[in-house]
Design a protein around this nucleic acid. Sequence first.
RNA 1: GCGGGCGUGGCGGAAUUGGUAGACGCGCUAGACUUAGGAUCUAGUGCCAUAUGGCGUGGGGGUUCGAGUCCCUUCGCCCGUACCA
Length: 897
Amino acid sequence: MRLNKFRIKFNREKMDYNFAEIEPKWQKYWEENKTFKTEDDYSKPKYYILDMFPYPSGAGLHVGHPEGYTATDILSRYKRMKGFNVLHPMGYDAFGLPAEQYAMQTGTHPAITTQKNCDNFRRQIKAIGLSYDWDREINTTDPKYFRWTQWIFKQLYSTWFDSDLKKGRPISELPIPDKIEAAGKEAVNNYIGEKRLAYYDNAQVWWCDSCKTVCANEEVLTDGAHEKCGNQVIRKNLKQWLLRIPHYAERLLEGLDDLDWPAGVKDMQRNWIGKSSGAEVDFEINGLGKKLRVYTTRPDTLFGATYMVIAPEHDFVNEIVTAEKKDAVANYIKASALKSDLDRTDLAKEKTGVFTGRYAINPVNNQQIPIWVADYVLMGYGTGAIMAVPAHDTRDFEFAKEFDIPVNCILDPKDVEDRDIILAGDKCWTEDGEYVNSASEETGLDINGLNKTAGIQKTVEWLGENNLGKATDNFKLRDWLFSRQRYWGEPFPVIHWEDGEVTLVEDENLPLQLPNLEEYTPGESGESPLSNAGDWLIVTDKNGRKGRRETNTMPQWAGSCWYYLRYIDPNNTDNIFDVKKEQYWMPVDLYVGGAEHAVLHLLYSRFWHKVLFDLGIVSTDEPFQKLFNQGMILAFAYETATGAKVASDLVEEKDGKYFHIETGEELKQIVAKMSKSLKNVVNPDDVIDKFGADSLRLYEMFMGPLDERKPWAENGVKGVFNFLGKAYRFFADPTNIFEGEEDKDLAKLLHQTIKKVEFDIEHLKFNTGISALMVFNNLAIKKGKVTKETAEIFARILAPYAPHVGEELWSVYGNKKTLSYEPWPVVNESLLQENSYEYPVSFNGKMRYKMEFPLAMPKSEIEKTVLSDERSAKWLEGKTVRKFIFVPKKIINIAVG
RNA sequence: GCGGGCGUGGCGGAAUUGGUAGACGCGCUAGACUUAGGAUCUAGUGCCAUAUGGCGUGGGGGUUCGAGUCCCUUCGCCCGUACCA
């Protein structure tokens, strides 16, 4: 479908809405007057409104960007008029792969590409009329910025987590056990190294062979593809920097409770942190004099354990396996090591495993149960070993059925249809019930007759008393892999000395800049491009000792982890920010962005923030008080009956139906993501050219609720453009404005509109706010004349949405300065007072007619009037009134029958 | 499987939280002004029916004087996640 099917024409004779003149004029005014420069005026209440800053791609802004940006801009403009000191900044998350790949192909330095893209983004953002304080613009690739990213890394490296106090503390305060102290300096250093929040070690990592880099767990998609490029990642063992985020698991989990965040995002983070409560239990291994420790969330089902499983990678495998099973087990381990992770996590596949030939002793009843090796048990979770209770765990049940292992039901489901089948061990039961066969005279444990909660409690107590196990929590959250084999990232301020010592670059030598390179291509086996940087790479200390700089760089998350803090004091050269300013501005009052960052950026940021809080660097425990996810903007797309997608330029519309231009086939209109291949990508620049920035802003807000996904429709832009045109033509025409008293209806609606617009902005319901402005505009035009006071109020309440039209009207009325700091109009409640109400009169819930009554009229009189009204006769005929319902200022309903 | 969200006219969506379903906009229909209209203005527009009226918020059931809204049940779609013991 051709998108340019109409062009806006102006009537040059009359005063018309010429956005192409108005918009650049006011953008220039704001820029020259630094209208939106934010002062650190502590006497005013503050409001910090943050957008997720963009990655400045070569493709420029997408219509998804202005959606969130307009929403925050409306709120910012509104809050300024409400007397708040508003911090509303913008910047660029500019480290990243595309600029580096472009450099590999063309030799253009990533800094040049980045600069160009940032300039383009800035131009586009300014063309939307967003009220950012441009003096606070930041860029993660700017050495003045990443100096402090490196500085924070140093803080992480120099911090340990005190699990008693549940907080991070300076590494200098780490108590060293006497035993370690006695073992010498190396032992002490190793001990400290094990406690640092940042550490360098061999790690099983995800490697993307297409990007030639490692990536974090969070960057690997469900199907094993790299989030950035879609290539399947593989496992590799490399020396890498990691951050001990699991130390903060509990804090990150608890912190979520008090945050005003979307439930979905909170749940995703909870899920990702993955806390489970259970117990660790030790099983004596028969004939080895060794204990095998398992983790279970169901210690209450110990009596039902009929076998055990250890992961193929478990340390004990070789010791446990008996001579005659050695080959079988070795083959199994080899086979599972070859399996891709995708295969291993494929739920549909059948369970596999092999018996080790050895038995363990179940501590609750001293029975011997076989130990198996199976890859459905993962080394990375819990202890890498489980007790298997097939009667009450679906995975164990599947496995037991596969290998003919006994299923002992120990939990009577009671009133359930399949009770007999379950009791016979032919069906798995994972819900609550009453224990049976769960007592042993020999060991003294008896939980028969209890329910699940009581069973768990009693078993855990018993395990503790007998020194066989204890209650334990487990988390899914793993160490955060924090280094990348890339050029275009923050260099680590780290030197590896030839004697094995690792030191950090001194604060006064930060930032550690990136060297200029000829060759940006990473090595095949995981060397970073920086290993080609000869002069930069090698350092010598004053004693002649040689060292090599860390050649990995930080991941893109590093820069975005703390950018909201730098906006507070972006040009501070001595400190990361001024303490007073931080105390004034933090926390962020509202953070708006896409939901795709639910477990990546938003979890990492919270982690860093908590560490900085523990170290006394920031004053709040959480960075973002309220989070709001804007919904994705989609587009209409077309597909054939067989579901084949058709590019939009091959579609024509006839009588509300869609046809293929070439084949004539009727097509179905669907909603899909904008994509180049479907040719339905909308560029904000084009929309501004054709309709203006105010129309773009208004339409993005008018489309629907901010948090919902919704399709772009150009006709909708025309709708809001028509509104702005109508409003402008009416309100900018001096012959429509008079001095005097406002029409009563219009005055009332005006104040209702102020109230509605205010409420809707506060609640981020911009679509209905615009609708209220339209309703008012329609009535004003119908009335034909408005007072200057009304006109000025309209300009002010329209301005947050359509600031260019707002400013233009304001100046038409003779005001010389911007309206950005004019006080928000006060609702005159007395105008909203009603002394009568037009009641809908319903019979059995169906509205039949309307009738006006004074609010003061008593119910009995209203009842009498309504029932004797001639319009009621028809509905009352042959029926008796069962009940007369009267709800003041709501409804009258007569139940008849 | 589990977790989160959604389902309202031809379309995007309203409904101030249990009280007039369909605000506002698009589209469509008719008219006005025009050489012209893809500009602008006016009127109409949930569906069925000639009409009194009937039917309508994915389907079924329930609570209530009254249900898009609450409860039960069922269907469909979207997002996230997955052998986490």
